[in-house]
Design a protein around this nucleic acid. Sequence first.
DNA 1: TCTGGGGTCCTAGGACCC
DNA 2: TCTGGGGTCCTAGGACCC
Length: 406
Amino acid sequence: LSAVWFHVDLDAFFASVEQLDDPGLRGKPVVVGASPGGRGVVSTCSYEARAFGIHSAMPIGEAWRRCPTAVFLPPRMERYSELSSRVIEIFASMSPEVSPVSIDEAFLDMSGTGLLWGSPAEAATTLKSRVRGETGLCISVGVAPNRYVAKIASGLRKPDGLVIVEPGEEAAFMLALPLSKLWGAGEKTQERFRDLGILTMADLVALDERQLSRLFGEAGGSYLYRAARGADLPLFGGKTASKSVSAESTFENDIVDREALEASLLEMGCSLLYRLWQGGLSSRTLVLKLRLFDFTTLSRRLTRPLDYGDTNKVLADALELLDRAWNGKTPVRLIGLAFADVTDSAAPAQAELFPPEDRRKKLEAAIFGLEKKGIADLRPARLIGRRRRRGGWMGGEPEAGPTDPQ
DNA sequence: TCTGGGGTCCTAGGACCC
DNA sequence: TCTGGGGTCCTAGGACCC
Protein backbone atom coordinates (compact mmCIF):
# COMPACT_ATOMS: atom_id res chain seq x y z
CA LEU A 1 0.00 0.00 0.00
CA SER A 2 1.26 3.40 -0.93
CA ALA A 3 2.19 6.02 1.64
CA VAL A 4 -0.09 9.02 2.05
CA TRP A 5 1.44 12.32 3.01
CA PHE A 6 -0.36 15.58 3.70
CA HIS A 7 1.41 18.89 3.60
CA VAL A 8 -0.68 21.52 5.33
CA ASP A 9 -0.12 25.24 5.11
CA LEU A 10 -1.96 27.97 7.00
CA ASP A 11 -3.03 30.60 4.47
CA ALA A 12 -1.55 34.09 5.00
CA PHE A 13 -1.15 32.99 8.58
CA PHE A 14 -0.05 36.11 10.49
CA ALA A 15 -2.42 38.40 8.60
CA SER A 16 -5.29 35.94 9.01
CA VAL A 17 -4.77 35.87 12.77
CA GLU A 18 -4.92 39.66 12.87
CA GLN A 19 -8.15 39.63 10.89
CA LEU A 20 -9.51 36.91 13.14
CA ASP A 21 -8.75 38.85 16.32
CA ASP A 22 -9.95 42.18 14.94
CA PRO A 23 -13.07 41.79 12.79
CA GLY A 24 -12.61 45.39 11.69
CA LEU A 25 -9.64 44.22 9.61
CA ARG A 26 -11.54 41.61 7.64
CA GLY A 27 -11.80 42.34 3.95
CA LYS A 28 -9.02 44.92 4.22
CA PRO A 29 -5.41 44.89 3.07
CA VAL A 30 -3.35 43.94 6.13
CA VAL A 31 0.45 43.91 6.14
CA VAL A 32 2.26 42.26 9.04
CA GLY A 33 5.94 43.10 9.23
CA ALA A 34 8.40 45.87 9.88
CA SER A 35 7.59 49.48 10.59
CA PRO A 36 6.71 51.36 7.36
CA GLY A 37 9.43 53.94 7.08
CA GLY A 38 12.01 51.54 8.50
CA ARG A 39 14.39 49.15 6.79
CA GLY A 40 12.49 45.92 7.27
CA VAL A 41 10.34 43.74 5.07
CA VAL A 42 6.84 42.33 4.82
CA SER A 43 6.42 39.21 6.90
CA THR A 44 2.95 38.18 5.73
CA CYS A 45 0.10 40.07 4.12
CA SER A 46 -3.58 39.37 3.57
CA TYR A 47 -4.92 38.38 0.19
CA GLU A 48 -6.53 41.82 -0.07
CA ALA A 49 -3.03 43.31 0.19
CA ARG A 50 -1.69 40.87 -2.40
CA ALA A 51 -4.09 42.39 -4.90
CA PHE A 52 -1.87 45.50 -4.73
CA GLY A 53 1.19 43.45 -5.62
CA ILE A 54 2.43 43.23 -2.05
CA HIS A 55 4.09 39.98 -1.02
CA SER A 56 6.26 38.40 1.67
CA ALA A 57 9.86 39.62 1.90
CA MET A 58 9.07 42.82 -0.01
CA PRO A 59 10.77 45.91 1.46
CA ILE A 60 8.20 47.53 3.70
CA GLY A 61 8.63 50.92 2.02
CA GLU A 62 7.69 49.38 -1.28
CA ALA A 63 4.56 47.87 0.27
CA TRP A 64 3.69 51.29 1.65
CA ARG A 65 4.06 52.85 -1.77
CA ARG A 66 1.82 50.25 -3.35
CA CYS A 67 -0.92 50.61 -0.78
CA PRO A 68 -0.61 53.45 1.74
CA THR A 69 -4.10 52.76 3.04
CA ALA A 70 -3.25 49.20 4.10
CA VAL A 71 -3.15 48.43 7.80
CA PHE A 72 0.48 47.90 8.84
CA LEU A 73 0.98 45.81 11.97
CA PRO A 74 3.97 44.48 13.91
CA PRO A 75 4.08 40.70 14.32
CA ARG A 76 2.69 39.19 17.53
CA MET A 77 4.63 35.97 17.61
CA GLU A 78 3.25 34.73 20.94
CA ARG A 79 -0.30 34.90 19.64
CA TYR A 80 0.65 33.14 16.40
CA SER A 81 2.44 30.40 18.33
CA GLU A 82 -0.62 29.87 20.47
CA LEU A 83 -2.90 29.38 17.47
CA SER A 84 -0.26 27.30 15.72
CA SER A 85 -0.22 24.90 18.66
CA ARG A 86 -3.98 24.55 18.56
CA VAL A 87 -3.89 23.75 14.87
CA ILE A 88 -1.15 21.19 15.44
CA GLU A 89 -3.31 19.53 18.07
CA ILE A 90 -6.03 19.12 15.47
CA PHE A 91 -3.47 17.62 13.09
CA ALA A 92 -2.36 15.24 15.83
CA SER A 93 -5.92 14.11 16.41
CA MET A 94 -6.07 12.90 12.81
CA SER A 95 -2.53 11.71 12.09
CA PRO A 96 -0.26 9.41 14.11
CA GLU A 97 2.76 11.41 13.00
CA VAL A 98 2.84 15.17 12.64
CA SER A 99 6.08 16.95 11.74
CA PRO A 100 5.82 20.71 12.00
CA VAL A 101 8.15 22.39 9.52
CA SER A 102 7.62 25.93 10.72
CA ILE A 103 5.03 27.94 12.59
CA ASP A 104 2.56 27.73 9.73
CA GLU A 105 3.11 24.37 8.06
CA ALA A 106 3.44 20.70 8.82
CA PHE A 107 3.68 17.25 7.26
CA LEU A 108 1.14 14.67 8.33
CA ASP A 109 1.72 10.97 7.74
CA MET A 110 -1.76 9.77 6.84
CA SER A 111 -0.71 6.31 5.66
CA GLY A 112 -3.13 3.63 6.79
CA THR A 113 -5.75 6.01 8.20
CA GLY A 114 -8.36 5.02 5.60
CA LEU A 115 -10.58 3.10 8.02
CA LEU A 116 -10.66 6.06 10.39
CA TRP A 117 -10.99 9.02 8.06
CA GLY A 118 -11.96 7.60 4.68
CA SER A 119 -10.21 8.44 1.45
CA PRO A 120 -7.44 11.04 1.43
CA ALA A 121 -9.88 13.49 -0.13
CA GLU A 122 -12.40 12.90 2.64
CA ALA A 123 -9.75 13.13 5.34
CA ALA A 124 -8.43 16.40 3.90
CA THR A 125 -11.92 17.87 3.73
CA THR A 126 -12.58 16.88 7.33
CA LEU A 127 -9.27 18.42 8.39
CA LYS A 128 -10.00 21.68 6.64
CA SER A 129 -13.45 22.06 8.15
CA ARG A 130 -12.22 21.13 11.60
CA VAL A 131 -9.45 23.73 11.50
CA ARG A 132 -11.87 26.33 10.26
CA GLY A 133 -14.52 25.40 12.81
CA GLU A 134 -12.22 25.18 15.81
CA THR A 135 -9.86 28.08 15.10
CA GLY A 136 -11.42 30.18 12.34
CA LEU A 137 -8.31 29.69 10.19
CA CYS A 138 -8.04 28.57 6.60
CA ILE A 139 -5.57 25.94 5.36
CA SER A 140 -4.35 24.57 2.07
CA VAL A 141 -3.61 20.87 1.80
CA GLY A 142 -1.40 18.91 -0.59
CA VAL A 143 -1.79 15.14 -0.71
CA ALA A 144 0.79 12.87 -2.34
CA PRO A 145 2.75 9.64 -1.94
CA ASN A 146 5.77 11.59 -0.67
CA ARG A 147 6.54 14.80 1.16
CA TYR A 148 8.24 16.67 -1.64
CA VAL A 149 5.26 16.35 -3.96
CA ALA A 150 2.77 17.02 -1.15
CA LYS A 151 4.66 20.21 -0.35
CA ILE A 152 4.43 21.43 -3.91
CA ALA A 153 0.78 20.38 -4.21
CA SER A 154 -0.28 22.39 -1.16
CA GLY A 155 1.03 25.58 -2.73
CA LEU A 156 -0.85 25.32 -5.99
CA ARG A 157 -4.37 26.44 -5.13
CA LYS A 158 -4.02 28.78 -2.19
CA PRO A 159 -5.99 29.91 -0.34
CA ASP A 160 -8.27 27.14 0.89
CA GLY A 161 -6.69 24.73 -1.59
CA LEU A 162 -6.77 20.97 -1.90
CA VAL A 163 -4.60 19.24 -4.48
CA ILE A 164 -4.28 15.47 -4.60
CA VAL A 165 -1.58 13.60 -6.50
CA GLU A 166 -2.35 9.90 -6.91
CA PRO A 167 0.35 7.25 -6.50
CA GLY A 168 2.22 6.77 -9.75
CA GLU A 169 1.28 10.23 -10.98
CA GLU A 170 4.17 12.08 -9.31
CA ALA A 171 6.34 12.43 -12.40
CA ALA A 172 3.45 13.45 -14.65
CA PHE A 173 2.31 15.96 -12.03
CA MET A 174 5.75 17.55 -11.93
CA LEU A 175 6.07 17.56 -15.71
CA ALA A 176 2.95 19.72 -16.00
CA LEU A 177 4.36 22.41 -13.70
CA PRO A 178 6.35 25.48 -14.67
CA LEU A 179 9.99 25.38 -13.57
CA SER A 180 9.30 28.19 -11.14
CA LYS A 181 7.32 25.78 -8.94
CA LEU A 182 10.38 23.64 -8.29
CA TRP A 183 10.93 23.96 -4.56
CA GLY A 184 14.62 24.43 -3.75
CA ALA A 185 15.49 26.15 -7.01
CA GLY A 186 15.36 29.83 -6.18
CA GLU A 187 16.18 33.00 -8.07
CA LYS A 188 19.80 32.20 -8.87
CA THR A 189 19.08 28.70 -10.06
CA GLN A 190 16.14 29.88 -12.18
CA GLU A 191 18.50 32.39 -13.75
CA ARG A 192 20.96 29.62 -14.54
CA PHE A 193 18.16 27.56 -16.04
CA ARG A 194 17.42 30.40 -18.42
CA ASP A 195 21.07 30.87 -19.32
CA LEU A 196 21.36 27.17 -20.08
CA GLY A 197 18.22 27.12 -22.18
CA ILE A 198 16.37 24.98 -19.65
CA LEU A 199 12.95 26.54 -19.99
CA THR A 200 10.52 23.80 -19.01
CA MET A 201 10.32 20.87 -16.64
CA ALA A 202 10.65 18.62 -19.70
CA ASP A 203 13.96 20.31 -20.55
CA LEU A 204 15.18 19.54 -17.04
CA VAL A 205 14.01 15.93 -17.09
CA ALA A 206 15.87 15.46 -20.36
CA LEU A 207 19.19 15.82 -18.54
CA ASP A 208 20.66 12.86 -16.72
CA GLU A 209 22.09 12.98 -13.25
CA ARG A 210 25.69 13.17 -14.45
CA GLN A 211 25.02 16.17 -16.64
CA LEU A 212 23.10 17.92 -13.86
CA SER A 213 25.91 17.30 -11.38
CA ARG A 214 28.42 18.80 -13.78
CA LEU A 215 26.26 21.91 -14.08
CA PHE A 216 24.98 22.31 -10.53
CA GLY A 217 27.48 20.48 -8.35
CA GLU A 218 27.30 17.04 -6.81
CA ALA A 219 24.48 17.66 -4.37
CA GLY A 220 22.62 20.21 -6.47
CA GLY A 221 22.61 17.89 -9.47
CA SER A 222 21.16 14.89 -7.72
CA TYR A 223 18.66 17.14 -5.94
CA LEU A 224 17.37 18.54 -9.23
CA TYR A 225 17.33 15.10 -10.80
CA ARG A 226 15.05 13.75 -8.09
CA ALA A 227 12.94 16.88 -7.64
CA ALA A 228 12.08 17.17 -11.32
CA ARG A 229 10.73 13.61 -11.24
CA GLY A 230 8.71 14.05 -8.08
CA ALA A 231 10.85 11.64 -6.05
CA ASP A 232 11.07 12.11 -2.31
CA LEU A 233 14.03 14.11 -1.06
CA PRO A 234 16.08 13.45 2.03
CA LEU A 235 15.88 17.15 2.85
CA PHE A 236 12.41 16.68 4.23
CA GLY A 237 13.09 13.60 6.26
CA GLY A 238 16.52 13.68 7.79
CA LYS A 239 17.09 14.77 11.34
CA THR A 240 19.54 17.60 11.43
CA ALA A 241 22.88 16.96 13.03
CA SER A 242 24.57 20.33 13.08
CA LYS A 243 22.78 23.37 14.38
CA SER A 244 23.37 26.99 15.06
CA VAL A 245 22.01 29.63 17.33
CA SER A 246 22.18 33.17 16.05
CA ALA A 247 21.11 36.75 16.54
CA GLU A 248 21.49 39.68 14.22
CA SER A 249 20.15 43.16 13.86
CA THR A 250 19.99 45.82 11.21
CA PHE A 251 20.52 49.39 12.31
CA GLU A 252 18.00 52.02 11.36
CA ASN A 253 20.95 53.95 9.98
CA ASP A 254 24.37 52.62 8.99
CA ILE A 255 26.90 53.23 11.72
CA VAL A 256 30.64 53.65 12.11
CA ASP A 257 30.50 53.84 15.88
CA ARG A 258 32.62 51.01 17.21
CA GLU A 259 31.26 51.30 20.72
CA ALA A 260 27.73 50.81 19.45
CA LEU A 261 28.85 47.69 17.57
CA GLU A 262 30.52 46.37 20.70
CA ALA A 263 27.41 47.02 22.72
CA SER A 264 25.40 45.00 20.21
CA LEU A 265 27.89 42.17 20.39
CA LEU A 266 27.72 42.09 24.14
CA GLU A 267 23.96 41.97 24.17
CA MET A 268 23.86 39.27 21.51
CA GLY A 269 26.60 37.28 23.20
CA CYS A 270 24.69 37.23 26.49
CA SER A 271 21.44 36.32 24.89
CA LEU A 272 22.95 33.56 22.72
CA LEU A 273 24.84 32.04 25.61
CA TYR A 274 21.64 32.06 27.59
CA ARG A 275 19.74 30.37 24.78
CA LEU A 276 22.41 27.69 24.55
CA TRP A 277 22.26 27.08 28.25
CA GLN A 278 18.50 26.99 28.26
CA GLY A 279 18.43 24.45 25.46
CA GLY A 280 21.07 22.28 27.08
CA LEU A 281 23.41 22.99 24.17
CA SER A 282 27.02 23.95 23.77
CA SER A 283 29.34 25.18 21.07
CA ARG A 284 33.01 25.91 20.50
CA THR A 285 32.57 27.95 17.33
CA LEU A 286 31.68 31.62 17.25
CA VAL A 287 30.72 33.45 14.05
CA LEU A 288 30.55 37.18 13.50
CA LYS A 289 28.54 38.57 10.63
CA LEU A 290 28.71 42.05 9.16
CA ARG A 291 26.67 43.60 6.43
CA LEU A 292 28.18 46.80 5.11
CA PHE A 293 26.46 49.90 3.75
CA ASP A 294 26.55 48.49 0.21
CA PHE A 295 25.02 45.18 1.33
CA THR A 296 28.22 43.20 0.99
CA THR A 297 28.08 40.59 3.69
CA LEU A 298 31.02 38.98 5.37
CA SER A 299 31.65 36.58 8.19
CA ARG A 300 34.58 35.66 10.40
CA ARG A 301 34.63 32.58 12.56
CA LEU A 302 36.77 31.04 15.23
CA THR A 303 36.77 27.55 16.71
CA ARG A 304 38.14 26.94 20.18
CA PRO A 305 39.30 23.64 21.62
CA LEU A 306 36.69 23.86 24.38
CA ASP A 307 33.06 24.91 24.58
CA TYR A 308 32.21 28.51 25.33
CA GLY A 309 31.12 28.91 28.92
CA ASP A 310 31.09 32.53 29.93
CA THR A 311 30.30 35.86 28.40
CA ASN A 312 33.80 37.21 28.90
CA LYS A 313 35.30 34.77 26.42
CA VAL A 314 32.47 35.21 23.96
CA LEU A 315 32.82 38.96 24.01
CA ALA A 316 36.60 38.89 23.79
CA ASP A 317 36.47 36.60 20.76
CA ALA A 318 33.65 38.58 19.18
CA LEU A 319 35.78 41.71 19.45
CA GLU A 320 38.70 39.92 17.88
CA LEU A 321 36.50 38.78 15.01
CA LEU A 322 35.26 42.34 14.62
CA ASP A 323 38.86 43.52 14.28
CA ARG A 324 39.48 40.92 11.63
CA ALA A 325 36.38 41.83 9.66
CA TRP A 326 36.13 45.57 9.92
CA ASN A 327 38.47 48.47 9.19
CA GLY A 328 36.68 50.80 11.58
CA LYS A 329 35.60 53.18 8.83
CA THR A 330 33.17 51.42 6.51
CA PRO A 331 29.56 52.11 7.51
CA VAL A 332 27.91 49.00 8.94
CA ARG A 333 24.32 48.11 8.19
CA LEU A 334 23.95 44.90 10.18
CA ILE A 335 25.84 43.05 12.84
CA GLY A 336 25.22 39.49 13.90
CA LEU A 337 26.69 36.82 16.13
CA ALA A 338 26.17 33.07 16.11
CA PHE A 339 27.27 29.86 17.71
CA ALA A 340 27.80 27.24 15.03
CA ASP A 341 28.14 23.44 15.14
CA VAL A 342 26.08 23.36 18.28
CA THR A 343 25.88 20.02 20.08
CA ASP A 344 23.96 18.67 23.03
CA SER A 345 25.73 19.74 26.13
CA ALA A 346 26.91 17.18 28.68
CA ALA A 347 25.01 19.03 31.40
CA PRO A 348 21.47 19.81 30.29
CA ALA A 349 19.92 22.90 31.77
CA GLN A 350 17.00 22.81 34.18
CA ALA A 351 14.26 24.71 32.47
CA GLU A 352 12.25 25.17 35.66
CA LEU A 353 14.79 27.60 37.01
CA PHE A 354 13.92 30.03 34.30
CA PRO A 355 10.26 30.06 33.29
CA PRO A 356 9.85 31.50 29.78
CA GLU A 357 7.98 34.61 30.97
CA ASP A 358 10.99 35.54 33.02
CA ARG A 359 13.49 35.19 30.23
CA ARG A 360 13.95 38.81 29.42
CA LYS A 361 14.16 39.86 33.04
CA LYS A 362 16.63 37.13 33.86
CA LEU A 363 18.73 38.07 30.91
CA GLU A 364 18.75 41.67 31.97
CA ALA A 365 19.69 40.56 35.44
CA ALA A 366 22.49 38.46 33.98
CA ILE A 367 23.83 41.39 32.03
CA PHE A 368 23.56 43.52 35.11
CA GLY A 369 25.44 40.91 37.08
CA LEU A 370 28.21 40.85 34.54
CA GLU A 371 28.47 44.56 34.81
CA LYS A 372 29.09 44.19 38.51
CA LYS A 373 31.47 41.29 38.09
CA GLY A 374 33.78 43.52 36.16
CA ILE A 375 33.09 42.95 32.54
CA ALA A 376 32.22 46.59 32.71
CA ASP A 377 35.95 47.17 32.84
CA LEU A 378 36.13 45.96 29.30
CA ARG A 379 33.61 48.47 28.01
CA PRO A 380 32.07 51.62 29.40
CA ALA A 381 29.13 50.62 31.58
CA ARG A 382 26.74 53.00 29.91
CA LEU A 383 26.88 50.90 26.76
CA ILE A 384 26.01 47.75 28.59
CA GLY A 385 22.80 49.22 29.83
CA ARG A 386 21.85 50.42 26.38
CA ARG A 387 19.07 48.32 24.94
CA ARG A 388 16.56 48.59 22.19
CA ARG A 389 13.04 49.58 22.97
CA ARG A 390 10.34 46.98 22.65
CA GLY A 391 6.62 47.02 22.02
CA GLY A 392 6.03 47.35 18.30
CA TRP A 393 7.34 49.66 15.69
CA MET A 394 5.89 52.85 17.05
CA GLY A 395 8.61 52.90 19.69
CA GLY A 396 11.48 50.89 18.25
CA GLU A 397 12.06 48.23 15.65
CA PRO A 398 9.85 45.18 15.39
CA GLU A 399 10.91 41.61 15.37
CA ALA A 400 9.85 40.73 11.89
CA GLY A 401 8.88 37.10 12.05
CA PRO A 402 9.52 34.51 9.39
CA THR A 403 8.06 35.22 6.04
CA ASP A 404 5.15 33.28 4.75
CA PRO A 405 5.03 31.78 1.27
CA GLN A 406 2.62 33.43 -1.06
C1' DT B 1 11.97 48.52 -5.11
C1' DC B 2 17.04 49.51 -1.65
C1' DT B 3 16.59 44.75 0.29
C1' DG B 4 14.60 41.21 8.22
C1' DG B 5 15.86 37.55 11.20
C1' DG B 6 16.13 32.79 12.06
C1' DG B 7 17.78 28.84 10.21
C1' DT B 8 19.78 24.69 6.83
C1' DC B 9 22.95 22.72 3.49
C1' DC B 10 26.77 22.85 0.00
C1' DT B 11 31.33 24.12 -2.03
C1' DA B 12 36.06 25.16 -2.35
C1' DG B 13 40.41 25.83 -0.56
C1' DG B 14 44.14 25.48 2.96
C1' DA B 15 46.54 23.11 6.77
C1' DC B 16 47.94 18.99 8.51
C1' DC B 17 48.63 14.00 8.91
C1' DC B 18 49.55 9.36 7.14
C1' DT C 1 64.51 14.98 -5.32
C1' DC C 2 60.04 15.73 -6.39
C1' DT C 3 55.59 14.42 -5.57
C1' DG C 4 50.83 10.37 -4.58
C1' DG C 5 46.30 10.37 -2.68
C1' DG C 6 42.94 10.20 1.18
C1' DG C 7 41.00 11.88 5.44
C1' DT C 8 39.90 15.41 8.84
C1' DC C 9 39.34 19.92 10.58
C1' DC C 10 38.64 24.58 9.73
C1' DT C 11 37.20 28.91 7.20
C1' DA C 12 34.43 31.96 4.06
C1' DG C 13 30.90 32.54 1.09
C1' DG C 14 26.58 31.53 -1.15
C1' DA C 15 21.90 29.56 -2.23
C1' DC C 16 17.71 28.71 -0.31
C1' DC C 17 13.56 28.56 2.77
C1' DC C 18 9.87 30.40 6.07
